[in-house]
Amino acid sequence: MSQNQLKIIALVTMVFDHIGAFIPNAPIWFCYIGRISAPIFMFCSIQAYIHTKDKMKYIFRLGVAAVVMTIGNSLLYLWFNINSISCYPIENNFFATLYIGTVIVYIYDKCKSKVGFFIIVILWQVAVTVGTDLLDINVLSNFKHFNGTIYDLLNTVLGVMIRCEGGPLIVLLYFLMYLAVINKNKNMLWLVYLGFVMLLQLTLLKFYNRQGIIFWSLLPFVKYQGLMILALPVFYWYNGLRGSRIKAFYYIFYPLHIWVLYSIGIFSKI
């Protein structure tokens, strides 16, 4: 299967997942199906990053998409609040996760020292995480309605890993999958992905619903997250071909379907 065909599978399962997440009384198995969506998009993103002629342009495109979606999410949430309609913030923005993942693998590729790579990533994440929090406490609180929007934008642009969709563990999975893919070893990819998902599910069984910011930040997953293992066979179907070019469709469809389903879900509760 081509990269484009894999994206179609990811897109369809993603829609099922978000219907289950946003629409009241939707069957829970919609969300079960949706567990394979994000890993397939990650795999396709890795392939796109590897084969693109201009890696910085690809990273920039993901960053812009993440920023646009952050603004759209915030404005839609703000609109409902201004009109006194009970709602909750939109936490979906997988563009931001892919953006951070590609920045990390780019740093990895450019660093001659792997120790230096880890130092750069750690210092980057500590600086942006602490910095955005300090700005939020000391500056952004003065902006009233728009402090949340500005805060989210800063987190997106600066690539704060702990606040992206899926958190640090999904970014780690992106990096590990990248290492397996560049080695052109499907067995290595299989072992990395299987091992990661099994450890994640075991961790969730032990710590699911634990209170505290550490657990919320590191384990922002549903208890059946282990079903993402079902994406593994899809990786083997990839034939190395790109397929027809309709990349703009995915950049447009993803945020639009989120905003539509979110709005339908909110209005259905009124």
Rank of each mutant, 00 (worst) to 15 (best):
Q3S: 13
L6I: 11
I9E: 12
A10P: 08
T13P: 15
H18L: 02
F22N: 13
P27S: 07
F30K: 06
F30N: 10
I33E: 10
R35H: 14
P39N: 02
H51W: 00
K53E: 10
K55H: 07
K55A: 08
K57L: 04
K57V: 03
K57G: 12
K57W: 00
K57R: 12
F60W: 12
R61F: 12
G63K: 01
G63T: 12
V64M: 13
V68Q: 14
G72M: 13
L75P: 09
N83C: 11
S84K: 08
P89A: 05
P89H: 04
P89T: 02
N92S: 10
F94K: 04
F95M: 15
A96H: 07
I104H: 00
V105F: 01
V105H: 02
V105K: 00
V105G: 01
Y106M: 04
I107L: 11
K114W: 01
V115A: 08
G116M: 00
I119T: 10
V121D: 01
I122R: 01
L123T: 09
L123D: 07
W124N: 07
V126Y: 01
A127C: 04
V128D: 04
T132R: 06
T132Q: 02
T132P: 02
D136E: 13
I137W: 03
N138R: 06
V139Q: 03
F143G: 06
K144E: 01
K144F: 10
F146H: 06
F146G: 14
N155W: 15
I162S: 09
E165F: 04
G167K: 00
I170K: 00
V171G: 11
L173D: 05
F175Q: 00
L176F: 07
L176N: 04
L179T: 09
A180G: 14
V181Q: 06
I182A: 07
N185T: 03
K186D: 15
V192E: 14
L194Y: 09
L194F: 10
F196S: 01
Q201H: 08
L202R: 01
T203H: 00
F207I: 06
R210L: 15
R210A: 15
R210Q: 15
W216K: 11
L219R: 00
G226H: 06
L227P: 09
M228G: 07
I229H: 06
L230Q: 13
P233H: 05
P233W: 04
V234N: 04
N239A: 14
I246S: 13
Y251A: 10
Y254E: 13
L256S: 15
I258R: 08
W259G: 15
Y262W: 03
S263E: 12
S263P: 09
I266C: 11
I270P: 10
I270C: 09
